[in-house]
Amino acid sequence: MFRSTILAVGLLALGCSLAPAFAATPATAPAATQAKAVHVIVLDKMVFGPMPTGVRAGDIIEWVNHDIFEHSATARDGSFDIDLKPGATVRTTAKAGSFPFFCKFHPGMTGTLVAK
């Protein structure tokens, strides 16, 4: 009985002392995810929009198809093949390197994604 009371008081005290630390965690979490930048590539009127600059490996690439046609972003080296239906938004993770890509339905549509 006495032992369990001490244990309970001890746990409560531990809980109280830890609580501020836990409460502080969410405030620091965004700082950890800020490194994962999101870069948007917009497709419209049969063209891939401007390529993002300053992309780092691990960043998010958001492909947004504003066109009325179905397109794809297909890497020439086969490392990605993203289907983009009209209105679709697809997110991928950038890998380090230079990746020329094209639309497999309309091969005149091209771009090169560069990530460091």
Partner: peptide, 17 residues
């Protein structure tokens, strides 16, 4: 005009295909 210009790009792609 803008829609027809997009159509022109589309026809060009289709012709190559």
């Amino acid at each position: 005009k803008s829609l027809l210009e997009t159509g022109s790009k589309l026809f060009h792609e289709h012709e190559m295909h």
